[in-house]
């Protein structure tokens, strides 16, 4: 218990004192995960909408694969992105490996399928409800997709927040493609892994507290949004 108490005291001191190293790591983490979430949403939501509304051959297998991809192990994503970005790899010339860019790519690959799959489910339910009405009013498929994306916006923001939470909390992918370089590619999760193994439990715990707070805030935001939506729109 004493080890926990000491670590906790150090963690509090770092947090309250505004330790620059700590805040550098937190800020990089949030920037990387935020960027990955934005890109993944830009790719994933339209794919989800297309799968929800359009009927084309091969749709069903794609949906099954997409659902399976939701459970992609981060280390495998890290490995594949590493191979793609390594100097000998097909995208090696971009020089992204061991930069925040590589981490953004890895997290995007990790969460884009999650966003697409969850968005598809949400939009498919909405389409089932409104399909006849929208067609009756003369909406094209594209107009219907836009209308339903807007109509389910609160649910979709919750989906995007879930993606962000997953990206921020994941360690396997960023540690492989980022390399955990101090001040460059060290995120909250990779730092926790490293500091714990070094025995610097104070910094590890401080980062753990921040990470927990972020995850908590994201979830609070999600449920707050849901309540707001139900209250305002039924």
């Amino acid at each position: 218990m004493a080890i926990f108490g000491d670590a906790f005291a150090t963690a509090l001191a770092l947090l309250i004192g505004g330790d620059p190293q700590l805040f550098g790591i937190v800020s990089l983490s949030l920037q990387v995960s935020l960027a990955a979430t934005l890109i993944a949403a830009t790719i994933g939501l339209p794919i989800g909408a297309a799968l929800a509304l359009a009927r084309f051959p091969g749709r069903q297998p794609i949906v099954v694969i997409l659902n399976a991809l939701m459970g992609l192990p981060p280390v495998v994503v890290g490995l594949v992105v590493y191979l793609l970005l390594s100097r000998a790899g097909p995208l090696g010339s971009l020089g992204l490996l061991f930069t925040p860019g590589a981490m953004i790519v890895a997290q995007t690959v990790l969460i884009a399928p999650i966003l697409a799959a969850l968005a598809r489910q949400t939009l498919e339910d909405a389409w089932a409800e409104h399909c006849d009405q929208l067609r009756s009013l003369g909406a094209t498929l594209l107009q219907s997709a836009a209308t339903l994306l807007w109509d389910t916006r609160y649910a979709l923001v919750t989906v995007v927040l879930a993606g962000f939470g997953r990206a921020a909390a994941e360690v396997g992918a960023v540690i492989i493609v980022g390399g955990n370089i101090a001040g460059v590619t060290r995120t909250m999760t990779t730092a926790i892994a490293l500091e714990t193994s070094k025995g610097d439990l104070g910094l590890a715990l401080a980062l753990g507290i921040v990470l927990l707070a972020v995850v908590l805030a994201v979830n609070a935001a999600a449920s707050g949004l849901k309540n707001l939506s139900v209250r305002r729109y039924g």
Partner: peptide, 17 residues
């Protein structure tokens, strides 16, 4: 008949607006 017919459904659906 495109654009010249309309329907009121047995179970009308409403958008969130």
């Amino acid at each position: 008949p495109k654009g010249h017919q309309a329907m009121v459904f047995q179970r009308p659906s409403m958008l969130r607006r």
